[in-house]
Design a protein around this nucleic acid. Structure first.
Lengths: 224, 224
DNA sequence: CCTTAACCTACCGACGGTCAGTTAGTTGTC
DNA sequence: GACAACTAACTGACCGTCGGTAGGTTAAGG
């Protein structure tokens, strides 16, 4: 009767289920009991795979961050101008379908109250992980004279923080027109911080498209 | 033997002690038991004043935010140009000695891990409370042609978020030279976002002075 | 002006319930 | 038969509750 699975499969199952529950109920409202009930195993099994509940968050955030960093690295390596790279990197769209739902759930989780721990850790890890590949893009634009920044490291950090802040704030807004004006302001702000030409930064179209489709994805109740 | 105090005094005592403990150990590492031990009362007394541990955070954040909002309002009402107001408002210095330690402790608490809840609530409440008075300053500068922003509401929100983000990130940095370069970049970034003249925003001197003196204040172990 | 009874409210501390994490032991697989 | 996945009962820590106490204040009665 008892389902016996490979370590890798089971581990991933815990991660998927946990993310879903965190997105639905928030991190502190989700108990380890909830997770093991959903997976259908016992308490001990959970602790066989993870040292703590927080470690689950750590792994979720690590996974997503490394995936994002990889995408940004790929974008940075392309043979296009820095503004185009920037726009792609800021709004990463080429997410595999498989990762799309995870991203959507994480996005939803970010906004939900009771996910302060999750949100902060994701932001911290994103900053650590994505700073290096992102800096490559900023440096290129700076060298080519498209951007004008006094400090590439700081500019990268500031930019990433602004985007993460933006996304977090968006996930709490309901009104699409408020979302629009916020994103539009950030287009303006990012361009100015970088010293890029006005209107060169385009976040609105890709971000809004993403948000709408992810909202739908996120509300799907389809099981694995 | 039993100290009987007025409701107001006791309530404030709980708030002071709690903030100190949150700054020392973090929110989740601080138990209600710790708080009542430090105050020297029983469990019931704590719950006589607060519905929950979280309510303490809420009141701490509300108190500080309203105080900050008041200061910004005062600055906005002064008869000086918008850039000066901006610089004052962004780095609020005229804090009474009495509030200085609280601010320092809160600052320390922001950086300390395990205070995600505290940090996020403070940021949220600050945004709610300080947006209106701050917008007055931005609007004035915009009307006078010193600032150039497409959307005053969004500019205000963006600016506040940037400053709160900056302070949070600073409280985690140890190296003063890293702090310097970060603050300097934000001077540049804030000026550009607002379309203000280059070098018109001055954060470095007041912020660094504050941080150094607050570090000393924060490490004092003197009792009340 | 003193007494005393009714009342108020800060304060008490044992207890219930919840939940993260542990451990000793069992089952299935290679 | 050895090792890894898994189980289930257990522990300890903590939040929040609840019935009750104690010190003080008000006001009626003498």
């Amino acid at each position: 009767m008892k389902q016996r699975k490979s370590a890798e499969t089971r581990r991933q199952e815990f991660l998927d289920v946990s993310l879903r529950l965190f997105a639905e109920k928030g991190f502190d409202r989700t108990t380890v009991q909830d997770i093991i009930d959903a997976v259908g195993v016992s308490k001990g099994t959970f602790y066989h795979y993870f040292d703590s509940k927080r470690e689950v968050v750590e792994e979720l955030a690590q996974g997503l961050s490394q995936y994002a960093a990889q995408l940004i690295e790929d974008i940075a390596a392309q043979d296009i101008d820095a503004v185009k790279k920037l726009n792609s990197a800021l709004t990463i769209q080429e997410v595999k379908q498989e990762h799309l739902r995870k991203k959507a759930q994480m996005q939803g989780a970010l906004g939900r109250s009771g996910n302060f721990y999750l949100a902060q850790r994701l932001i911290d890890i994103m900053l650590e992980t994505c700073a290096a590949p992102f800096a490559v893009i900023v440096a290129q634009g700076s060298k080519q004279g498209i951007f004008d920044v006094p400090d590439i490291k700081e500019a990268t950090d500031c930019l990433l923080r602004m985007m993460l802040t933006l996304k977090q704030s968006l996930s709490r807004l309901e009104d699409p027109s408020l979302m629009r004006s916020r994103v539009q302001f950030y287009e303006h702000a990012v361009a100015r911080v970088l010293g890029a030409p006005p209107c060169s930064v385009n976040l609105l179209e890709p971000l809004m498209r993403r948000y709408l489709s992810e909202r739908e994805q996120g509300t799907q109740t389809k099981a694995n």
